[in-house]
């Protein structure tokens, strides 16, 4: 009973959030709606007994991908007026695509595509599936698993090799320089004559001839 209620909660919020992703005018709101839908999808996974998949969804999609989306949205300059004006042009195409997809869904449902036998909707694994996955990944599939890790390492090396460069004109912290700096390098003690102002005092202090 509680599980059914939770399912209804998660799935309805998921649908509303998904709708929000495509209808919100502000791209920042779209990304936030997307994060909400990820969380609810994770909840659905956990209800199904796939808690590892659910946590993975939160960690990878919310923790990494959605945050990256947020950064990207922040860095691009979006003109809301232009966005609103352009929206009308693509509406007929959007309706067409959705209509085709809807028809396909109805046809699929008619043909019995969504008719799942009862026993398949139950939780697939009884034990903790993080443990089971870990055992398989580190025994039978250890070679492809480690290979995938090396591929990620290669991608990191590649990203650094292809994009990192030393820029000129950037102020960096140089600790040796900071420590070796002396008082005499950056401080001038002068006795400015009365009523002549600081600027004059500076020139006098530097020893510049008038």
């Amino acid at each position: 009973m509680l599980a059914d209620l939770l399912f209804l909660l998660f799935s309805s919020v998921l649908l509303i959030a998904a709708l929000g992703v495509i209808t919100a005018k502000n791209p920042m709101h779209c990304v936030l709606f997307m994060i909400l839908s990820f969380f609810n999808a994770a909840g659905l996974f956990i209800l199904l007994g796939a808690e590892f998949l659910g946590l993975l969804l939160v960690m990878v999609y919310v923790g990494a991908i959605a945050v990256m989306f947020l950064f990207i949205v922040m860095t691009i300059d979006i003109d809301f007026a232009v966005l609103k004006g352009k929206n009308t042009n693509i509406v007929p195409m959007g309706i067409l695509v959705s209509a085709v997809l809807l028809l396909e869904l109805i046809a699929g449902a008619w043909g019995g595509m969504f008719h799942t036998p009862q026993q398949q909707t139950k939780p697939v694994m009884q034990e903790e599936n993080a443990q089971i996955l870990g055992e398989v990944l580190f025994t039978d599939y250890v070679v492809p698993f480690q290979g995938a890790a090396i591929i990620l390492l290669i991608a990191m090396v590649g990203a650094i090799v292809l994009t990192h460069r030393r820029r000129s004109g950037v102020k960096r912290q140089d600790i040796t320089k900071q420590i070796q700096r002396k008082k005499s390098d950056c401080m001038i003690v002068t006795e400015p004559p009365a009523k002549s102002g600081v600027a004059a005092a500076y020139f006098v202090g530097k020893g510049v001839e008038k």
Partner: peptide, 11 residues
């Protein structure tokens, strides 16, 4: 394993 090796080489 084939696919992992192939991608490692290609990357």
């Amino acid at each position: 394993t084939l696919y992992v090796g192939l991608e490692m080489m290609s990357f």
